[in-house]
Measured scan of single mutants.
Amino acid sequence: MSIQHFRVALIPFFAAFCLPVFAHPETLVKVKDAEDQLGARVGYIELDLNSGKILESFRPEERFPMMSTFKVLLCGAVLSRVDAGQEQLGRRIHYSQNDLVEYSPVTEKHLTDGMTVRELCSAAITMSDNTAANLLLTTIGGPKELTAFLHNMGDHVTRLDRWEPELNEAIPNDERDTTMPAAMATTLRKLLTGELLTLASRQQLIDWMEADKVAGPLLRSALPAGWFIADKSGAGERGSRGIIAALGPDGKPSRIVVIYTTGSQATMDERNRQIAEIGASLIKHW
């Protein structure tokens, strides 16, 4: 067993022997301040990774656009098919120029040779490549099948209805392509620590998230040296922004954090800054 596999296998073990965790309302004060600064709703939840206990939450059962955070769930569904012998990570998928959609920095470079399922998941999570996500959605049967996968996990809230990039439209009061912070946090925890996926697939999923290259201005910008984070960000229309993450000190994750916002007129930089400040408060009061 590799060191990384050992780390993920012992996530519940280490967490069980940690000192009790206590909620700190100071972080919620910052979440509410972010709402004021952005002029928009902000949803927040913080779960203990081992027990699933909610440590703090704000608007945990209000719907927010998922945006690209759905790509972690998508690759979880792909990995479940791999575990069941219905898919192979090494299978190569070929596609054409007509398949390319807006923001496809990886797939646009491989029109000639195609990409493997493993490479597509890596591109979808680490670079948020939209064509990679659409190609992977095709392998599982489309958005409705991802929703069905989530329902089978016990998540009857999260739903995907459309493809990239239309799913980022974020129309107010439109339930399409949305989740709730509580539902997303619980589902992410199941994917990373539950028995739904094999140990190898859980490790692969967290490795992809740990290698995320496009979430630097968010929670990662607030992390002290030595902290662990595996995350996936999302951005959408109407001032929408979000991030889902597993993080913790001492090089291992111990909490799940989900943050979503929508309806702001603020710039992307300002949305990023507010999420980073929430992260800084979380870490300060850990």
Rank of each mutant, 00 (worst) to 15 (best):
A185G: 04
A133C: 07
A276I: 13
L188E: 10
L205D: 08
I278G: 14
A222V: 06
E61D: 07
L79M: 00
L192Y: 10
S80W: 01
P65F: 00
T139F: 04
V72L: 05
D48M: 08
T187D: 13
V257L: 09
V101T: 06
W208T: 04
R41N: 04
D129S: 00
E108S: 00
V157R: 08
P165C: 04
A123G: 15
H156T: 10
P217R: 08
A40D: 04
W208Y: 01
T179R: 03
E102P: 04
L136D: 14
L89F: 13
A185T: 06
W286K: 01
S221K: 01
P249G: 09
G248Y: 04
A266V: 06
K30C: 15
A77S: 00
Y260G: 08
G236E: 08
Y44E: 06
D129A: 00
P224N: 15
E237D: 09
R81F: 01
T131G: 08
K71M: 00
T139C: 07
V117M: 00
E277L: 11
G239T: 08
R162Y: 12
E210Y: 15
F70Y: 02
K53V: 13
P105F: 04
S201N: 14
G236K: 06
S233I: 14
W227M: 13
G90D: 01
D155V: 03
L47N: 03
T139N: 04
G248V: 10
L199Y: 02
L120M: 01
D269Q: 13
L160D: 06
N98M: 01
L146Y: 15
R41D: 12
D36E: 04
Q97M: 13
L100K: 03
L55H: 05
P65L: 05
Q265L: 11
S96E: 03
H285N: 02
A123K: 15
I206F: 12
T178A: 08
L219S: 10
P217S: 08
R220K: 08
L74W: 03
A230C: 07
T116A: 00
G226C: 07
L218Q: 14
Q203W: 02
N152F: 08
F58I: 00
R63D: 04
Q88A: 14
V82D: 10
V72R: 00
K144S: 10
F70L: 03
A132R: 02
L136M: 10
W227E: 12
Q265K: 06
T116I: 05
L197V: 07
D129V: 00
L150H: 15
E169Q: 05
E56G: 15
G39N: 15
P65V: 03
E35C: 15
H156W: 07
I256C: 12
E210V: 12
Q37M: 11
G279A: 08
K190E: 11
K32H: 03
R220N: 03
P172M: 14
L79C: 15
G141K: 00
E195H: 02
W163N: 11
G141V: 08
R63Q: 08
M268I: 02
M209D: 02
H94C: 08
K109L: 13
T27L: 05
S221F: 13
W163G: 11
S128K: 00
L282P: 12
S221A: 09
R162Q: 06
A235H: 03
I243F: 03
E62Q: 03
I256G: 06
G43C: 05
T138W: 12
G154W: 11
L55R: 11
L111I: 01
D250H: 11
L28Q: 09
W286C: 05
M115A: 08
K144Y: 10
R241K: 08
P224E: 02
Q274Y: 07
P172R: 07
M209F: 09
D33V: 03
A230K: 14
A215P: 04
P25Y: 10
E195W: 00
V257M: 10
N152P: 11
E195A: 01
T126S: 09
W208V: 00
A77K: 00
I54F: 09
